[in-house]
Structure formats: C-alpha cells, structure tokens
Amino acid sequence: MTIKFSAVLLGASLMIGASAQAAVIGGLSNSVVLEDFENLENLGFITTGPVALAAGQVIATSNVIATYDSLPVDLGSNGAWGTDGYVGIGDYYNFSTTPSPTDSLTFTSLAGLSSLGADFSIYQDEFTTEDLLLEALSYDGSVLESTLVAIAFQDPASYNRSAFYGFARASNDIFGLRVTGDGFVIDNLSTAVVPEPGALPLLVSALGVFFGLRRKKSQ
C-alpha cells in the first residue's frame, strides 16, 4: 500500500486525451483495492504472464518481462520505488531488459467493471518527460477510451510516490486496462465497486480473452 499523493495533483493534465465524456478519473470514491502486490504467492518473479491477481479476478500480461516484486527501483526525478510490492515493466532482477516506450502491461478482468485504475509512477529524468498511455479495454480487447498522462514529481528524494489514474464509465463494460510506457511501476489496482462475477456470457468472453492470450504466448 502506498500513500496517495496523487488524487488531484495533476488534475489538469489528467484530462489530456480524455474523451468528451470525461471518464478518465484521478481518483475513486469508495475505492476497493483489487491487488496491492504485497502478498502474491510468487512475489519476486519476472515474467510476461499471465499472472493471476486479485484472487484470480484479474489476469496480468505484458509484452516484455515485468517484475512483480519490491526490489528498489530508481525512477529518477520521480524518486525511488521499493519496500512496497508493485509490478514494473522491465527485469528489475537480472537487468536483462531495457524498457522502451512501446512496452505495455495489460490487466484483464474476468468481470465487467464500471471503473478501474491504479497508482502509477514512471521514470523521469531532467531531459525528457515520459508519458504513460492508459487504455480502457472492452470485453473483446478493443479500446473503449484512452488517455496520455505525464507524471513528474520533481522529487528525487521521495519514496513510493505515485499518482492515481483510471477510468469510470456508466456501465460495467471495462474488462481491461492497458498501460504503455517507458519504465513504469504500478501499485494498488483498484475499482470503485466490489467486483462480482458477471453474467455467464461476460465471464465466458473474458476467459476467452485470457486463453487467447495464453495461446498467443504459446505460439
């Protein structure tokens, strides 16, 4: 768990790229943390997934190796992350992966949700500002909406400082959250409501996404 400095910190920038419906959110009321990355059965491993999160309600996959751990990460002017479980793009264990702006990590929910977000931070230095692309996904993996966010704390002495971003929609049609960027970490995957198993067709379609990913990986 981390202290959230983020809720309205960058309120203005939150809206960059947001749809006219302003479904991109900088915070959640009555939020429920689905996954805090503290007690994963396999905390301490690196993988592209799939990884079961939130007691199996959420599946995480990534297009490059991601680290599920609490190893310290230097995020430049955004401070350091560590002593606190997270998932981060890149192999923070053996250093065999150099993240790039096209790296992505996707959370797929087995049930439709009306809101989904998380705490984010990303490597920043004094030379460039790295944006984070967030996309809300439909049951078939298509993009419902997206936003670009810039996280820049300018506080290299800080620890575990993060900003919350997510999506809130009128119906339970969010089945995934895809995050794309260069050297980011994610903690406290959250929703505003306790997810309940959706109607059977929804669940089946979500599982289809999951197994589709597995097949893709095995190929």
Binding site: T67, L71, P72, V73, D74, G76, A80, G82, G88, G90, Y92, F95, T98, P99, Y123, D182, G183
Partner: peptide, 12 residues
C-alpha cells in the same frame, strides 16, 4: 537500484 536502463551506477 534498478533503473530504466539497467542497474544504477548512482544509487543503491
């Protein structure tokens, strides 16, 4: 520490 470009030479 880890960084975006491998192990840090500045911090640990």
């Amino acid at each position: 520490f880890s960084t975006r470009r491998g192990p840090s030479n500045d911090r640990g």
